[in-house]
Design a protein around this nucleic acid. Structure first.
Lengths: 203, 203
DNA sequence: GCACTAGTGCACGTTTGCGTTCCTTATCCA
DNA sequence: TGGATAAGGAACGCAAACGTGCACTAGTGC
């Protein structure tokens, strides 16, 4: 609904307007991928005009990449920080992390992730951005958990491997985001207890 | 190069022409996703005319879906049949399968898979088709391996779980197809020996 | 050799969407 | 209060692409 159809409705300006435009872009992207995004539909959803968009981004492509970049760095798919209770075991910490990731991917984060993956599959350059800005930082969180586990005697030193986060991320993202199939808590427990813990625990 | 620009060049007909059109569609799809596919570029690549395409498929959408359907069932991503030597261990059989999947995904199969996943992310109905026609049959191959392992005493009965193929498929596809990062044979061995075998072996 | 079928190439109408321009209106601040 | 800045809306030119139609050409079989 264009703002001007509602006389007296306040216009967005500055950062607020940019936020609305980027959010609208992500929403349109989630609907049907890059090809289904039009500047007109983004403007309508953001309740703004195309001129305001073109004042900020010279092309549709740059708008999409900027919006996805914000998404990568934003709170919805944000850095998965964990404040660990000293007492929590490595197993419980990993399970908590996996539950959090799953919850995120099962909601709006799933749509967001589909948008990002769609662009990643389409655009090899963006694939590199996805790797650096999204995947690597999250991988480090889990590597950190494993290193903490080594210090606590709960993880074999040689088990600190990138395959642990890659296995967890790959399995969850493929299941929930790509195939759109919910995963139960029992399956998450089975994943951690059945695959991860035997792989990392002291023998 | 249009056929008629080369006088005397034989025109494709019937099934051969349809094959060429579908192959051209998949190739265009792999380049930049659904939005970048045009009927004109497909026709050019297949060395045919748009009329021949529209004689067979009423819309671009139906051409793309038909082509992806063929891909799902075709030799490139074909049913991963394994003729197992009676002597081969469950571990070696799984490793052989994983190496074969990886080799497939690292070549033209990777481009094909990106096309399919791109459409799957974009189109929820196609996602279901992907599940039934691609994922489920391949999952059964690995379940079959696990069941054979139970009979041979190499696999715990309760370890026959869909999470085994899902974990392997998710990890490999995410790593090689989505993130476009090669995986070494050493990492494949680590994946099987470090994660799968501890998860399924008798204790 | 001819009739029939099928394919190629090109022109076409139509629609869609990108990006631009400009006038009007709203907002902000001195 | 007024000037400066920014936003909204709509029209526009242009290019691209979908899908159609048709004349001409190639292939096939009797």
């Amino acid at each position: 609904m264009p703002a001007a159809e509602e006389p007296g409705r306040q216009r967005k300006r500055g950062v607020e307007l940019e936020r609305a435009i980027k959010d609208a872009t992500i929403a349109e992207l989630a609907c049907g991928g890059y090809g289904s995004v039009t500047i007109e539909s983004v403007a309508a959803r953001a309740q703004t005009g195309k001129g305001s968009i073109y004042r900020r981004w010279p092309t549709k492509q740059e708008l999409v990449l900027d919006s996805l970049g914000d998404l990568l760095a934003g709170p919805l798919l944000g850095a998965v920080e964990m404040q660990l209770d000293d007492k929590i075991s490595t197993r419980d910490a990993i399970l908590t992390l996996v539950r959090r990731i799953t919850k995120l991917m099962s909601g709006l984060g799933g749509d967001a992730m589909r948008s990002i993956m769609g662009e990643s599959l389409r655009d090899e350059a963006f694939c590199g951005t996805f790797e650096c800005d999204f995947f690597d930082p999250r991988k480090q969180v889990l590597i950190g958990l494993l290193e903490r586990g080594v210090r606590r005697g709960e993880v074999r030193p040689e088990a600190v491997s990138v395959l642990v986060p890659e296995m967890l991320a790959g399995t969850l993202i493929h299941r929930v985001v790509v195939r759109r199939r919910p995963i139960s808590d029992a399956e998450l427990v089975e994943l951690v207890d059945g695959f991860v813990m035997p792989a990392i625990s002291p023998r």
